[in-house]
């Protein structure tokens, strides 16, 4: 069984020769120390060394506006989540309609197809990242967005609809052109905090789920496995998300409320696959390699066989010792 077959089987809930492993997507500041420790010189070389089964390949640079404009011209003065973007003061749907929304015709996937074609027999998680929830946040400012859900729901729906229309059209083009080069539709929205979901289940039902389902339906139409990335505690809505078509959850923020392996097993085992779960908030930063090995084995025992071992936050920071990453990889790929 090669890596690609292995992860496909795991996500499909079918038997595999061992559990899967994904290194994650280390932060740019982390790579130098990793290469130094492992004696590697490229990302792919390190992934091969660690027996990484999974490749996250997304077309970040496929949008080519003739005037060089970004996909969404957020017009945000800063980078914090609360900082309002172009719709911070918007109270009418007309203003939303007047915005210069992106045009999927400016997408060119030729380079992306080339990269996918050169990927070995590894699982290819791809499609556009499609973080519509976060982009609505950025366009309004997070606090403003949440308030407008109550005060100006039509405006929120209008913005979300435009974002989703773009992502539906863009992913459709992507899947049409890439065909079987992509195995899983991997997209991300951080719906949770450390203690709970960010907005109530009722607001999820009105402002998030309907749009979310359009994306999962598109993935299914093209026979892709649907993998949702969401940081934080999303326990309260995981049942709903499975019902909407999610095949695997990533990254399972282990220390967030109700996101521990035992709770996930009790409530969701057999209905969905798990990618992640190795704690990055304490264990990988402060633990010893022996601690990491013991925890990986525990997670495999608890969530296996439908588990892909990976950090509980993919962007491994420079404070994670390479020894612990090595321990995670060894324990993940041992039989």
């Amino acid at each position: 069984m090669n890596s690609r077959q292995r992860i496909k089987s795991i996500i499909a809930g079918k038997p595999a020769d061992r559990c899967g492993f994904w290194l994650g997507n280390p932060h740019p500041d982390s790579w130098q120390a990793l290469h130094q420790y492992f004696g590697t010189s490229s990302e792919e070389e390190l992934r091969l060394l660690l027996k990484d089964d999974f490749r996250w390949i997304t077309p970040w640079d496929a949008y080519h506006h003739p005037e060089g404009k970004p996909v969404f011209d957020m017009q945000r003065p800063g980078k914090t989540l609360s900082e309002g973007g172009v719709f911070a003061q918007t109270l009418s749907v007309d203003e939303v309609e007047a915005f210069n929304w992106p045009n999927p015709e400016y997408l060119d996937f030729s380079r992306y197809i080339e990269i996918l074609g050169n990927t070995g027999e590894f699982y290819r998680a791809g499609g556009l990242w499609s973080p519509f929830f976060h982009e609505v946040c950025d366009l309004f400012g997070m606090e403003n967005y949440f308030l407008k859900m109550y005060l100006y729901p039509d405006v929120v729906h209008a913005v979300t609809r435009h974002l989703i229309e773009y992502y539906l059209a863009a992913n459709r083009l992507c899947f049409q052109q890439c065909g079987d080069l992509i195995d899983g539709f991997f997209f991300g929205n951080d719906f949770g905090s450390q203690i709970d979901i960010l907005v109530s289940p009722e607001l999820f039902k009105e402002f998030i789920f309907p749009y979310f389902q359009e994306l999962t339906d598109l993935g299914k139409e093209f026979n892709k496995q649907v993998i949702l990335h969401s940081c934080g505690s999303i326990f309260r809505v995981m049942d709903d998300l499975i019902g909407l078509g999610v095949n695997a959850f990533h990254p399972l923020q282990a220390k967030a409320a109700n996101m521990d392996a035992d709770t996930l097993k009790t409530h969701f085992a057999g209905r969905v696959a798990f990618i992640g779960a190795i704690d990055t908030q304490d264990l990988l930063v402060n633990g010893s390699p022996d601690n990491v090995i013991a925890d990986v084995r525990r997670i495999k025992h608890t969530l296996g066989p439908s588990v892909v071992i990976s950090p509980s936050h993919e962007a491994l920071l420079p404070n994670v010792p390479p020894e612990n990453i090595e321990a995670m990889a060894i324990a993940a790929t041992e039989s």
Partner: peptide, 14 residues
Amino acid sequence: DGKVFIPEILIAAR
């Protein structure tokens, strides 16, 4: 207590 969420805090504070 997990009975309300961030938007409800925000709108009360407003």
